[in-house]
Amino acid sequence: MPVVAIYNVQGQQVGDLELNDSIFAANINQAAVHQVVVNHLANLRRGTHSTKSRGEVRGGGKKPWRQKGTGRARVGTIRSPLWRGGSIIFGPKPRDYSYSVPRKLKRVALKSAFSSKVKDDKFIVLDQLSFEAPKTKEMVNILKALNNTGVKTLVIIAEKDDNVTKSIRNIAGVNVINSNNINVYDLVNHEKLIMTKDAVAKVEEVLA
């Protein structure tokens, strides 16, 4: 069972925390992580791209010159895909890129992502994180105290907290989500992971 240190906002170790083996020390399944990340990115695509086919391009109703006798190639319309201003051959049309993956696969990928952070020593647990009012400067000082500056960092809190969100959102490379919105892409896309003790408990409650 992996044991990690618990830090306070001053960067001082205030205790230890035993993590759940099945979540934070699971076998890392890279194939599952890849599939879920690709699915996440596909679901984000709006699919609003559109090009005009030959029947949709305006104009080109008149044959530009006669079929034979001019010495030039035969052409039926100036809106041919071969001409500038013409249509597009097999161009993209609006479509839905979203698809679903099995729930079990998502759980395996989540556990793999968490386990990878713990294994690579890129996982930090805070005893608590709260602000009486939005204070970006205080959050910057907390990151400095944790020796966690200059890297992409994901902060996970137990419940939605506007003061914490507003304190973090202007810090470049640092993002915050609550425990209900955890996804594999965010975990993989950030180098470091900071979680509050309460957030760890909620994750273990759901995934264990």
Rank of each mutant, 00 (worst) to 15 (best):
T153N: 06
G69E: 04
N39K: 06
D186C: 06
I28A: 09
G59E: 07
D186I: 08
D161R: 15
A26H: 02
H40M: 07
V33T: 04
V188A: 08
A172Y: 14
S100Y: 10
F131K: 06
V200I: 15
G173V: 04
R74K: 14
S167Q: 03
E132T: 15
H190E: 00
Q67K: 13
L44M: 12
R46L: 15
Q12T: 05
G69R: 12
P92H: 07
H190C: 05
K166I: 00
Q13M: 10
V200Q: 03
M139L: 11
K192L: 08
G150H: 09
S115H: 05
V37I: 12
V174S: 00
N189I: 02
L41C: 02
M195Q: 00
V33D: 01
G15W: 05
S80C: 03
K135Q: 13
Y97D: 12
G150K: 07
N8Q: 04
K166G: 02
N181H: 09
S167R: 03
D120N: 13
T196N: 05
D120S: 15
A172M: 10
N27Q: 11
A42W: 07
A208I: 06
E138H: 14
V9T: 12
N8W: 04
V200E: 02
N175P: 00
I6N: 06
R79C: 05
G86K: 02
R54N: 09
S115G: 15
R46G: 09
Q128P: 00
R46Y: 06
P102V: 04
A133G: 01
K137T: 08
V3C: 01
K144H: 06
K152C: 02
A172V: 11
I124K: 12
N181M: 05
G11C: 08
R66T: 04
V188S: 01
V155A: 07
M1Q: 05
D21H: 04
N148I: 03
K106L: 10
A158T: 02
T70M: 07
